[in-house]
Structures are given as C-alpha cells and as structure tokens.
Write a protein that binds this DNA or RNA. Structure first.
Lengths: 180, 180
DNA sequence: ATAAATGTAGACCGACCTGTCTACCAATTA
DNA sequence: TAATTGGTAGACAGGTCGGTCTACATTTAT
C-alpha cells in the first residue's frame, strides 16, 4: 500500500510548485494531506528526499505531457509549432495536468538551492537534458545549433512569461525560429 | 551618515544573491556586517524593505554595467555582440562588480516569491523592463520583434547557463540573431 | 554644555522549522 | 489467536525565523 506515499508526493508537489520548496514546511504538507508525520518519515528519510520525489513526479508528468504534444508533428517546423503552442497553453492555464502556471519548477528550485552539486540541483539539470532529448527525438536529424536555439528560446519563453508576465513569448519564439 | 545603511544593503545583496533571499536570515546579515539589529530596523522597517533596497542596488549596478558594455557599439549587430559577450563574461566570473555568477537575482527572487502582485515581484518585473529599454536605446529604430528576440534569448541564455551550466549559451544567441 | 540622534549588544517574544519519539489503533498474515 | 505492519495524533527537542525592547555608549547639533 503506497497510496499514502503517492498522496504525500502529490500534495508536496502542488505546494512546492505553488509556493516554492523552501517556503513549504513539512507540517503544511502533513496538514493538507491529512497524513501523520511518522508516516511521512517512514516513506522518506528527509524533506530533501520528498523534494526529490516530487521533482521526479513533475518530470514524469511534464515529459509525458510534452511527448503527447510533439508526437503528431510531421515536419520539423510542426514540432517547433507544437512545442511553443503547448507552452502557450501551459502559461495560460489551459493544461490542467500541469497546474496553475508558476514558472518552471526546476528553474525555480535551482534558484532556491545555491549549491549546484546538490542532488536537487543536479536533478533539475537532468530534467532539462531529458526535455532536450525528447525534442531531439521528434526532429529529423537536427543540427546541434538548431536544437540549441529551440532550447534556449524555450527557457527564455518560460522565464519571460513568468517574470514579466508576457504570455506571448512562445509565439515570438516560433517567428524567430522560422528565420533560422 | 548612511554608511551603515549602505553596508547593510551591500552585505544583504551579496548574501541574497549567493544563497537566495529566503535562505538568508536577518541575523546572518547582522553577523556578517557587524551591525546591530536595532540599527537595521532603524533604517528598514522590515526584512522585505531591505530586500527591496538590495534589489534596487543590484538593478543600478547591473544597468550601469550593461550601459558601459553597450555604449561603444556602432551598429545594431555590434550591440547584440556586446550584449551577449558581456553575458559570457558575467557567467564566467570575469565581471567582478557583478559577483560570482549565480543566475539572475531577479529571476531567482521571482521564483521565491509566489505572489506576482507583491512589491518584490513587481520590482523584478520592472528590472527586466529597464534592461529592455536600455537595449532599445542602443539600437537604431529596432522593431519590436527584434527587441523581443534579443530579450527572450537573453533570458534563455541566463537560465540555460545557470540551470544546465552551459556557459556557451550567449554565443549561440549571437548566431541565432545573425539570421534574424 | 546639554539634548537629540544614532549607534552597540543582545535578551527576549511567539512562531515556525526538521526530525524523533511515545502511545495507541486497525488490518493483515502466520 | 498472536504477531507484525502500517497507520494516527501529537508532544517534544533543538534550532532559526522576523521583529521588539531595554540599557548603555557615542556622536552631532544647538
């Protein structure tokens, strides 16, 4: 019976994403999930372990979501369009499985953890690699330069949308890549 | 005599940038700066006020630094080159006045403050506008699309460099913009 | 010289943090 | 039936948080 474990991860993830990892205490997660502290510490040896589990969950959800959005593209330009249209939907809260847009959890979490060699920072880095590989798999023989451009613009779109509240950033990225 | 005030801001800023705003306590700032708590609260009514002052200081430093890097450009492509070369220098810790690279303080701080209408989040947004305007001033009749491209790529370069540790991102941005 | 402002040192407040522990309950399994 | 497992509730420990306050020292201005 690992349903408690899953409830803990789901609750933690939604709170972490909404308010930031360091701003959410264990007790809040317990209160919201209605699970006892002892149970949490049977499943996770520390808060960091729970954070890591939540990041992994988010990574799975996100990769799956992105996969679905890219898979039906027939040309490279369609992949790009699908990718950035998907971002637009995410930013405007049309993708329920991703939750209310609050930037990228992995960027946000990296920002909170100053040690780049910590397990958590490394996992954030890993997530970005995963996304990059997924995009690469959906392109036909992409050059490194093209892939780099897509990925940098993707990060730029996420950051711009979140910090400056400009939801049109992904559409601008499509135009930029048209000329590439 | 506002030297104490300045010391507090400088100390707070360097700690905030290194470790994140929420991870740095008032007491740590006091210990490092060697200033009494009462003095801090005479100058600032709350920690948030100190955070805001530190952000303003960072904004000034950053804008000044960027201004110096852009001002001697003669063509638009030179402005772009100067901008992204400056980012490269920043990321590789060759710009002492910006401190050891730990991403963008304003992006990081936005990530920590979940309420987008808070004064702090709004100031982060303001900073990005300031940078955009500064870039615009150094370009000759730039189209909105061109300016958008530069700014999105800039955010992408910062985020990519920080999260995935790819210091070459700015140079890739130059190539992307060459084809624009 | 006197008064006001600015400073230091740090005790203290109530709240919250992660993590441990006791005590008890319910369900499954040998 | 007895024992094990997984659960609840929450006190507790040791520490940090932002912020207030007292008591005293030093500087500045009138």
């Amino acid at each position: 019976m690992n349903s408690k474990r899953e409830i803990l991860i789901d609750t933690a993830l939604s709170l972490f994403y909404k308010n930031g990892v360091n701003s959410v205490g264990i007790n809040e997660i317990l209160k919201v999930s209605g699970i006892a502290k002892k149970t949490l510490y049977r499943h996770f040896e520390s808060k960091n372990a729970l954070v890591l589990a939540a990041l992994k969950q988010r990574n799975n959800t996100f990769i799956e979501w992105l996969e679905c959005n890219l898979c039906d593209a027939k040309t490279d330009t369609e992949v790009v369009k699908n990718l950035f249209n998907a971002l637009t939907n995410w930013f405007s809260n049309s993708e329920t499985e991703l939750g209310e847009f609050r930037g990228c959890l992995f960027i946000n979490t990296s920002a909170e953890f100053s040690d780049p060699s910590s397990e958590i920072s490394l996992y954030c880095q890993y997530h970005k690699q995963q996304v990059r590989e997924l995009i690469a798999e959906n392109l036909s023989n992409p050059s490194d330069a093209y892939l780099d451009a897509i990925c940098i613009l993707k990060e730029g779109a996420i950051t711009t949308a979140y910090v400056t509240n400009d939801l049109s950033a992904p559409q601008k990225c499509i135009h930029i890549l048209e000329k590439f």
